[in-house]
Write a protein that binds this DNA or RNA. Structure first.
Length: 458
RNA sequence: GGAGAGGUGGCUGAGUGGCUGAAAGCGACGGUUUGCUAAACCGUUGAUCGGUUAAUAAACUGAUCCGGGGGUUCGAAUCCCCCCCUCUCCGCCA
């Protein structure tokens, strides 16, 4: 389904996981598949790999002979060649040379049939090989807890105080609707379920938290990009969303483009098909973008309010760095810290969760989710997700760098939410609500709202 | 939407059937020169997948690759077909 044309450059079987690593330690990948609860036939893959390589050797040898003879034919058939001239000078006639050349041509003709067979077989085997390789998951880091699903994620730490209300707290829909900030009903009328309309201070608050996040990232030295949100399929494939995630994306079939569910896609793919210099790494980017999600398969889940919606805006951060685990880990901590700083400034209680093996994506090595306290849920709800991939995405994107010894390597990539709104508004308005239905604006946010300290009231 | 042009190595850019994996230039790396820098000169310098020895450093060797796929041919960057992408001009709309 994903023809090579979707990639910027030539397709080859080295994409995905490096087969050499699998050959070297198949157990490790079998274990990874078990832990990530994915189906993956490593033994079958290795068998196909063996077959593929022996075929390749046979084919190469045959072609070698063929090429050799072709080279000789070139001498007999090319009157311009030095060899031909010397042969003539040595007393051979042009007819003789032609006849001898013709003999060689017949010799090669016999080899061609065999080569064609081999080629067909090789292609078939390579296809099977690639299909199997596509299913191999990236092994999770050692620090990732074993588990089957999100209920087994391990809490790392809690930050901030969960508010105790002296009154009956209201949920964000009630609060925001009351204050004229939100109109769910008409959003649904316009665009169907999981849609909404922000109004007045609702829009202002939404914009304010995004801008706060943008300013923080600028402060932290990240480069801001304004990126396309409708991207080529190649970018969806390259970042690992396709194949597999087609149902989650709004695809424009006739254009071969998809609306992104996150700016991670254009940010990570920004340098695809490039070779970066080691000294320009790490690249630290962020972008504010609209995000589109079909939420297929989530029917009936989180249908209430602003939690799970088709369209939202998000500030996303991406780091592209050297191919080095320690470097990757350090950046992972950094981008996690950036997101935590946002929540600290918004005075929101949250916890950091180490996502367990069963809840990791195929390409992810480790993922930390940040969950922010949402009173109406009586619990923490996911607001951020920080992943590191090692070279998984970079391989697919042909995103490489040249080290100081001039060797090529795939980069490492990581990403994390900085803020996603309006989901974060759930936490914001619910945690900071007052008894009278007004909402206290945390100090750090006030500059973005004309200095106001409260929303609502007179 | 209409009409053209074009896609070649890290980059620029030659190359229209056979010693072309690819001229030249730039860049990079190594060396000579040099008080340092610069300049000059000489040399080296593509990728991917394999094989052999060595055990992932290195050496040798093979196949494949000039946007992608297919075809013609003993032989294709070069000829033919399909597709993708980029650019320019015109029209249209922001």
């Amino acid at each position: 389904m994903w023809r090579s044309g979707f990639f910027c450059c030539r397709e080859d079987v080295s994409l995905m996981i490096d087969i050499k690593l699998i050959r070297q330690d198949p157990e490790r990948f079998k274990q990874a598949a078990r832990n990530k609860r994915m189906v993956c036939d490593i033994d079958g893959l290795c068998a196909v790999d063996d077959r593929r390589r022996s075929l390749q050797v046979e084919f190469d040898e045959l072609r070698h002979k063929q090429n050799e003879i072709s080279g000789q034919i070139a001498l007999y058939k090319n009157p311009k060649s030095k060899w031909y001239q010397q042969a003539l000078a040595g007393g051979r006639t042009a007819d003789e040379l032609q006849a001898e050349g013709q003999k060689l041509v017949e010799q090669v003709a016999a080899m061609k049939a065999r080569a064609k067979d081999l080629e067909g077989e090789l292609r078939e085997v390579n296809e099977r090989f690639e299909a199997l390789l596509l299913t191999v998951p990236q092994p999770p880091a050692d620090e990732v807890p074993l588990g089957e699903d999100d209920t087994q994620n391990v809490e790392q730490r809690r930050v901030g105080e969960v508010p105790q209300f002296a009154f009956e707290p209201r949920d964000h829909v009630a609060l925001m609707t009351e204050l004229g900030m939100l109109d769910v009903e008409r959003g649904v009328k316009l665009a169907g379920t999981r849609n909404y309309v922000l109004r007045g201070d609702g829009v202002a608050l939404h914009r304010a938290v995004l801008q706060l996040a943008v300013d923080l990232m600028v402060e932290r030295g990240y480069t801001q990009l304004g990126v396309p949100v409708l991207v080529r399929d190649a970018m969806m494939v390259g970042t690992g969303y396709f194949p597999g995630g087609e149902e989650q994306a709004y695809r424009c079939e006739r254009d071969g483009l998809s609306l992104v569910g996150t700016a991670e896609v254009p940010l990570t793919a920004y340098h695809c098909d490039e070779i970066l210099g080691e000294d320009e790494l790490p690249k630290k980017y962020f972008a504010l973008s609209t995000c589109f999600r079909r939420e297929a398969g989530a029917a009936g889940k989180d249908t209430y309010g602003l939690y799970r919606i088709h369209l939202f805006e998000k500030v996303e951060q991406v780091v592209i760095c050297r191919n080095d685990e320690q470097t990757s880990i350090a950046h992972h901590a950094e981008i996690l810290g950036n997101a935590e700083e946002v929540l600290r400034r918004l005075e929101l209680p949250y916890r950091v969760v180490n996502v367990c093996t069963g809840d990791l994506g195929q390409g992810q090595v480790q993922k930390f989710d940040i969950e922010t306290w949402m009173p109406s849920r009586g619990g923490y709800g996911e607001t951020h997700s920080a992943s590191r991939f090692y070279e998984y995405q970079a391989r697919r994107l042909k995103l490489r760098f040249r080290d100081r010894d001039r060797n090529l390597h795939y980069c490492h990539t990581l990403n994390n939410t900085v803020i996603a709104s309006p989901r974060v508004l759930i936490a914001l308005v619910e945690n900071h609500q007052n008894a009278d239905g007004t909402i206290r604006i945390p100090a750090a946010l006030r500059p973005y709202l004309g200095g106001r300290e409260v929303i609502g009231g007179s």
